[in-house]
Design a protein around this nucleic acid. Structure first.
Lengths: 179, 179, 179, 179
DNA sequence: CATGAATGAGAATTCATTCAT
DNA sequence: AATGAATGAATTCTCATTCAT
């Protein structure tokens, strides 16, 4: 059900997706969804949290790897890549529904937790003199934004996100961030 | 009416916005909208084209200025900034509705025209040895993505997009792109 | 629309009446009802108030007539009769939905106003030594209950509520109440 | 299960009461109800019959007592009172669902049997010259209506149905009926 | 025999669109 | 030309009933 909702929300948007369609794609009855989620809003939040936590798991595994800021960044960038490759729908959904009006407190908390994790990495790298000075939020916004742009255009078929493209993009992004 | 639709589509999404609400905010009768736009879809497309053309006008003016690639990029970046500042709703809308399912052929054509314009700039700068080699689409995706990330987070109040932030971000983005 | 709702609520009960059926009987589209009443609950309250006020108008006209308690009571009883004859659906509805869970504050206020009016009559008649002593509410409950019983059984066809039945019942009811 | 249904039907009406809620209050699974009652309608009828028979038992015991019409009436009135006190939910339900559309033939038969019993009493009392002449149904409707009115208002807390109120009301009701 | 999750038909409500004024 | 009330198809959600466990 979460998967069905995820793909449909990506295809048609949250408001543009009728619940019966979600049910049909999930292969269950329309009423069944309501036994698991009190409302469409709750379903949307559940999808969001599920995706965000999946992404968090990917990056937490990645960021945990000790080492130089340079290596840390590479790990993060490749972690994002892997996540975007293995769960393209989840990645796209998180982007599109970044701050959707139906998201509740808990969803935002999950979102913030991931942001805090990355902010921490940036702060330490700045302290080590490896990253450009300035508001970590700004650096993160630019780097993550660049990655999102990459994925979006790749989705549209403008280019392939292969090993080579990732290596090149990672190097370019690092050039943007390094001190 | 276009403005009313623009702000509401931003606040609630396209599918989540009732036409009567658009009419109300525009201060006209519900039927009046249909004297100007045949359907909600057409209204959405009109908003999209209007925004895209506004952005194009900004950047065309900017990119037209000849000069070094370095200067050209700065002009583009600042052009984006000015557009995002003067028409934040338009900028946000273009991002969110990048490839919405209701967009028609003409809207996509307008979109592509802007993309072609920028691609052209990148190609020339690469030929001049000023920019990193590689698929121009990839570079554009990253740079534009970085800018979008910046604006989105600034919208959420994480930082201010003031003169200093723009100067710093422009410099960082250039570091990402330059050869 | 109020009339359609009234008759259907009588036939099938409030919860047992689908809004589209109300619309059909009223000869309007289903959505039209919602342009006049925000919800089914509001429709129910509107019907209730309309009926209660109609009854109030009948009895206010009746009770206003000065004169002896004996005459006053006759006027009230006949007022009820006329109301029940001219608006049988309204009378039945008020009885059945006396204290329905969907009734709001305002509806109860309308209800209480009528009760206060009659209580006042009883108090004055008691003071004049014409009516039995005791809690006016108790006397009213019995007399009004007797009338309701009459109408309900007449509805079922057990007897006709003609001039003679009303005269006899009024006399009987008065025997119950008089000092 | 019957008790759970009874209380819920009183609180929310028949159509307004979901079967799963009945199951929950009865402390059984939703499916279990259907092992005992083929449908919601059958459950409703079972509740109705159960209540009507309980009332009948009370009054049969009461009315059976031979003696003067005066004593017979007192016994009936107090029988009603006892029943309304011991089984307020049953009493209220019988009133509200007097002629609900879901009641079947059998339920009506049970209802009619009780009515016939009381009619018989009235006829004999009229023959003895103790009661007012006229259609017995009319007298019963008024007297029973008065009692119902009493109970309904007492339910709402307007007064207490104590020993004194019953004695007074019984005397009043008798004044209404006697020749 | 009891259960309660699943179902889909049906209920309340919304909304894109029309059209008489 | 503008309006906004009316419409009914579509949407969210509920619930009587079933059936695998």
């Amino acid at each position: 059900m979460l998967e069905a909702a995820l793909s449909l929300f990506n295809e048609r948007g949250y408001a543009g997706t009728p619940m019966p369609l979600v049910a049909e794609r999930a292969g269950v009855g329309a009423g069944t969804i309501y036994r698991h989620f009190a409302s469409k809003e709750e379903l949307g939040n559940a999808v969001f949290r599920e995706c965000k936590l999946a992404m968090q798991r990917h990056l937490a595994g990645a960021g945990a790897a000790a080492g130089s800021p340079r290596d840390g960044f590479r790990t993060l960038w490749r972690g994002l890549w892997e996540f975007a490759r293995k769960s393209p729908a989840a990645f796209r959904f998180l982007e599109t529904h970044h701050h959707a009006p139906y998201l509740d407190e808990e969803s935002r908390a999950v979102s913030d937790a991931l942001f805090a994790h990355v902010t921490d990495f940036v702060r330490r790298a700045q302290a080590a003199g490896a990253l450009r000075a300035g508001d970590p939020a700004l650096l993160i916004a630019m780097a993550f934004g660049a990655f999102v742009g990459l994925v979006k255009e790749a989705d549209l078929g403008r280019f392939a996100l292969d090993e080579q493209a990732i290596a090149a993009s990672e190097e370019a992004a690092w050039s943007m961030l390094r001190a």
